[in-house]
């Protein structure tokens, strides 16, 4: 492994995080719900690859386990559940948004800069090879949060929530080489249950209002 210097390792981890951010922007720009789900699965795959790379570079075996769980839960199970939810809905794409796509993209660009300026004073004190990814992880969390505000459909809001979770996972991996295994397990279980509940809740929403627009929920009914 003579070619795998720490410098190249850092760059590979950076590349993985950059790909995660790239899929984030693709999700923001995408209007078709099923394509959003596919992009989320792709992002989770990139996340698992980055985590596996960190595990390989640092020799911490429990990150391998977290990466495998990411593939199982976020690449296979949750997208299947979401696809099934979308099949039942009468919408295939998001037509009305609170903020249109070009403006959302620009705002997300600003959010990346904000994340960069927030983490800039901290980063030089880090000594881990993943420290540059912290800015990207924070940016992904912010973009996920923004997407939850900018979109009206329950399915896209759920995907945005999962994107935020991906950002948190990347941040934990970047800042501390991953949380203890028991915490990771708990988080995965939570995310899985949250996705299932939100899927059921979306179906109930569809039945009750004939729409999955969450702004309808602000109208109280007797």
């Amino acid at each position: 492994m003579s070619w795998l210097t720490p410098h190249i390792g850092t760059q590979l981890v950076d590349l993985g995080s950059a790909l995660l951010l790239l899929t984030c922007f693709a999700i923001v720009a995408q209007r078709r719900l099923s394509a959003c789900v596919d992009l989320f699965a792709l992002q989770s795959l990139f996340l698992a690859m980055t985590a596996a790379l960190v595990a390989f570079l640092t020799g911490t075996p429990h990150i391998y386990f977290a990466a495998a769980l990411t593939v199982l839960v976020k690449v296979l199970v949750i997208p299947r559940v979401l696809k099934r939810v979308i099949e039942r809905l009468n919408v295939t794409r998001e037509l009305v948004m609170n903020i249109n796509v070009p403006a959302s993209l620009l705002i997300c660009g600003v959010l990346v800069m904000v994340a960069f300026f927030i983490t800039q004073p901290i980063m030089p004190f880090g000594h881990l090879l993943t420290r540059d990814s912290l800015a990207i992880a924070l940016a992904i969390v912010l973009i996920g949060f923004f997407t939850m505000i900018a979109r009206q459909k329950a399915v896209t809001q759920l995907i945005a929530f999962l994107v935020m979770e991906n950002g948190l996972f990347l941040g934990a991996t970047a800042a501390t080489y991953g949380m203890p295994l028991i915490v990771e397990l708990g988080v995965f279980f939570d995310v899985l249950v949250a996705a299932l509940i939100a899927g059921i809740y979306t179906n109930r929403l569809q039945d009750a209002f004939d729409s999955v627009d969450t702004t309808r929920l602000s109208e109280l009914k007797e």
């Binding site: 950076d14 950059a18 951010l21 790239l22 922007f25 693709a26 720009a29 796509v101 070009p102 993209l105 620009l106 997300c108 660009g109 990346v112 800069m113 960069f116």
Partner: peptide, 16 residues
């Protein structure tokens, strides 16, 4: 939309 994505990607390249 598509060209907005291109612009943001280029901006991100610059930021990265």
């Amino acid at each position: 939309d598509l060209l907005g994505v291109a612009f943001i990607l280029a901006l991100l390249g610059l930021l990265f």
